[in-house]
Simulated assay, not measured.
Amino acid sequence: MLTEEIPPEAFMEGPPPEADLLLQRTLGTVRAERTRAVRRRGRLAAAVTATLIAATLAGGVFVGQGLGGDSTHLFEGGTAGGARMSVQMTNTDGGVRLVATVDGITDGEKCWLVVRTKDGRTITAGSWLSHDRSVTLPAAAVVDARDVTGVAVMGTDKRELVAAQVDNT
């Protein structure tokens, strides 16, 4: 009695013998074309996404290096005790970006990198604990490059360990 409710097609494997083979082939072709179209759209979306990411990264590098009008200054200083410092200062929108390389500071000294301005201010741009090797410290300060007179490394007791003055020539 229960088997009377189930259609006879449910007990068959594959299409019934009297099925329209043309319809089956047409449906198979449509399915294959749809699969190809979906894959093609996926590849196109992936290519567009990769291009956008590459363009964004390239734009970020360009902006990170600074747009036209930025100027870079390099100045150096040293002490009789053998401490040396070279500073690369780049003027950016909103401040200066510094890369200071310091060598010859006593091992274990707590150091602050400070920027000195024409009006006598000192702006802390970075800090570190010295060691027996040279250190390269990227830093930044919110001050116009035209106002900078020099960069110094200060110790914990506010004594100057080494300084580099901006060459205003």
Rank of each mutant, 00 (worst) to 15 (best):
V30S: 10
L98C: 07
T101H: 03
Q24Y: 15
A10D: 02
G66E: 06
A19G: 11
A19M: 14
R43Y: 09
V61N: 14
G81V: 02
L74C: 02
A19T: 11
T156E: 08
P17K: 06
G108L: 08
H73G: 01
A140V: 13
E160A: 01
V162E: 00
T79G: 01
T49C: 09
V87I: 10
Q65W: 14
Q65A: 13
V162D: 00
V153D: 00
S127I: 06
T101E: 07
T90L: 13
T136Y: 09
D144I: 06
L161I: 04
L23D: 13
L23H: 12
R84Y: 04
T136M: 14
G81W: 02
V162C: 06
R159Q: 11
R146M: 04
V99F: 06
E9Q: 07
P7H: 05
R39K: 05
G77Y: 04
R41K: 10
F11V: 01
A47S: 10
L161D: 01
T26L: 14
R133G: 05
A10H: 01
A83G: 05
V38W: 08
T169R: 10
M154P: 10
G150Q: 04
I53M: 13
A50T: 09
G68Y: 08
A140D: 07
R31V: 09
G68H: 10
A50Y: 05
E76M: 07
G42K: 12
E18A: 14
W128P: 02
M89A: 11
V148N: 01
A125E: 00
D70Y: 04
V61W: 15
V153G: 01
I53R: 10
A54T: 05
T35D: 14
V114D: 06
V142R: 15
R41Q: 11
A55S: 14
T49Q: 08
G104Q: 02
P7M: 02
E18R: 15
T79Q: 02
G94Y: 09
S86L: 12
P17N: 01
S130P: 07
G78D: 01
L98Y: 03
T122K: 12
E160L: 00
L22Y: 13
P7F: 00
L137V: 14
L27P: 05
V114R: 08
A152W: 00
R97V: 13
V162L: 07
V87N: 03
L27I: 12
V114S: 06
L2I: 06
T3I: 07
A19Q: 13
L67C: 03
P7I: 00
P15L: 11
V135S: 14
V153Y: 00
G81P: 05
I6T: 07
V148I: 03
D157A: 05
L98M: 08
A45S: 10
A83Q: 05
G81R: 13
T79H: 02
T72P: 00
E13R: 10
F11G: 06
E109A: 11
H73M: 02
L137D: 08
D167N: 11
V99C: 04
A164Y: 03
F75N: 00
L52M: 09
S134I: 00
G81C: 02
T149L: 04
T169L: 15
A32E: 12
T51F: 15
R116H: 03
T156S: 09
V148E: 00
V102T: 02
F11H: 04
D20K: 15
S71P: 01
P15F: 08
M85N: 03
M154I: 11
D144L: 10
T79A: 04
E33Q: 13
G77V: 04
M89W: 05
